[in-house]
């Protein structure tokens, strides 16, 4: 039997195996940690209820598939002149389904020269990563992207 055929016969088992690597944490994150904070709460606290606008000025870079939920690279860049009259005041990064969705709140100034923030976050499972931007004119921009978290590899 060819290897390929052999695997085909294992089709059913394969599907079962396939669902295992992708963690679905939604059902498991019932236990609330000390800093539990939802995405809606977090947005509200920062924007004061103002609705953020989706914008292509916000470049959120995350992997589609994270090879390890403990270290997921996130980079946010915003098109902005970063002058005293027009700059990005803050970049917030959220892991929308973590116990505490807040990852980092960075307050920027025109002295940054460029509006960019990059770090690595832990994701407790497949979820959206979101970036909320506060502009100096009081407007809020937002971008979000889904990251599939896998338990991969061998140890």
């Amino acid at each position: 039997m060819q290897r390929r055929d052999f695997f085909k016969t294992l089709g059913t088992a394969a599907v079962v195996g396939a669902t295992i690597p992708v963690m679905s944490f939604a059902a498991e994150t019932k236990k609330k940690g000390p800093n539990a904070f939802t995405y809606e709460q977090a947005l509200d606290v920062i924007t004061g209820g103002k609705k953020p606008v989706k914008s292509d000025k916000v470049h959120l870079k995350v992997p589609e598939i994270a090879e390890n939920g403990a270290v997921v690279p996130v980079t946010v860049e915003v098109d902005s002149p970063m002058t005293d009259s027009d700059y990005v005041k803050a970049i917030h990064i959220f892991a929308t389904k973590n116990n505490n969705v807040r990852c980092i709140d960075a307050n920027l100034t025109p002295a940054n020269g460029k509006a960019m923030l990059s770090t690595r976050v832990k994701l407790g499972g497949t979820q959206d990563v979101a970036a909320l931007i506060e502009l100096s004119n009081g407007e809020f921009l937002i971008a979000a992207q889904s990251v599939k978290v896998t338990i991969g590899g061998c140890g």
Partner: peptide, 28 residues
């Protein structure tokens, strides 16, 4: 061994990372 085989067999496309993702990890 069934578990190992089944994940091996599966892996061809859907769950392997894209080159773009790999590039992002390489940048780190």
């Amino acid at each position: 061994s069934v578990a190992v085989l089944s994940s091996l067999s599966f892996c061809d496309d859907q769950f392997s990372m894209s080159d773009k993702d790999r590039a992002m990890y390489a940048e780190m």
